[in-house]
């Protein structure tokens, strides 16, 4: 009997070593299992910053900054030689899942989840508080089809959709580049579309909602930066600092012209700081400030 117990214990130990138990089967179960076309080769859940640093060599800070909670990853064999990797990141809020997506994408060209991009064998999308990436080692018509099918399956498994803060709806739609809104809360990313500053001139941190929006066409781009602060005191401090640091032109004026003849503007409304950069005319800069302010008043 004793020998049998030892045998069972050792067998269990070997089984656990060969196929470690998932720390979070709920998250892992949102990824497809093996099927006729796919066979799961390995899987793992990552829950700590250290694990993420080891796994995403060089890119973990991005996810940590956007409120990373955990990641489930499966690698599949597809057909004879190909491989597909699926990863689902659970973030602490839908806005942060959107944030990672808006950082990672170039375009939103696919209808999966709440926004998706397929590009060269790589599908990324966000839904609820989840950011999902599916990548095939070799892109073929079949592997592309499979990646998209897996994406739809994961989207169904997630089920619920996430709601973004109201400030995501205040930017005027006229001339807005659809899908260009980039959400962030670290000043390192304020230069994503156009160099603004290497310094934290808007006092951006994890407590603010910062949205950078593109307007116009590729030849004449202009930008609307919105930063929503927790209270009015902080918006006043940021308003004072950013006007002074961004350009002499805005120290005394709401709207002004730079040396290239482009227009900039700055204003606040309640807890919102608004900055217009590179607008083609005074009227457009003024319109963006006025309309954004009005929209913000209406959502309050």
């Amino acid at each position: 009997m004793k020998q049998l117990s030892i045998f069972i214990f050792l067998s269990l130990l070997i089984a656990i070593e060969a196929y470690p138990m998932n720390k979070d089967p709920i998250l892992m179960n949102k990824l497809p299992g093996s099927s006729a076309s796919l066979s799961v080769q390995s899987e793992k859940v990552y829950e700590t910053a250290e694990e993420l640093y080891d796994y995403i060599d060089g890119g973990a800070e991005l996810y940590l900054n956007y409120g990373f909670r955990k990641l489930a990853r499966r690698i599949y064999r597809f057909e004879e030689e190909n491989e597909i990797k699926a990863e689902i990141f659970e973030m602490n809020a839908p806005k942060n899942a959107y944030g990672v997506f808006s950082y990672s994408k170039d375009t939103a060209n696919t209808e999966i989840g709440q926004g998706a991009q397929y590009l060269g064998g790589s599908l990324i999308f966000w839904q609820g508080r989840y950011f999902v990436s599916i990548f095939t080692r070799e892109e073929t018509n079949k592997s592309k089809e499979e990646v998209l099918r897996m994406g739809r399956e994961i989207s169904e498994a997630i089920g619920t959709r996430g709601e973004l803060p109201a400030v995501f709806n205040v930017m005027p739609e006229r001339s807005l580049v659809k899908g260009s809104t980039f959400f962030f809360h670290h000043h390192a990313w304020q230069n994503k579309f156009r160099y603004i500053s290497n310094d934290n001139i808007f006092n951006i941190d994890e407590h603010v909602n910062a949205l950078l929006n593109q307007y116009g066409n590729p030849q004449k781009r202009y930008y609307l930066l919105l930063v929503e602060y927790p209270d009015r005191k902080q918006v006043r401090k940021a308003y004072k600092k950013s006007r002074k640091k961004f350009s002499k032109t805005l120290r005394r004026k709401r709207v002004g012209q730079d040396e290239d003849g482009l227009w900039m503007g700055c204003d606040t409304k309640d807890r919102l700081l608004m900055f217009v950069i590179d607008a083609p005319s005074k009227e457009e800069a003024t319109y963006l400030l006025d309309q954004t302010g009005e929209n913000y008043t209406q959502i309050k």
């Binding site: 990863e87 990672s104 991009q117 060269g120 064998g121 790589s122 990436s133 990548f135």
Partner: peptide, 11 residues
């Protein structure tokens, strides 16, 4: 340029 969690695409 990089896309996705692993910041790589041959494109």
């Amino acid at each position: 340029h990089g896309v996705g969690p692993h910041h790589f695409n041959e494109k």
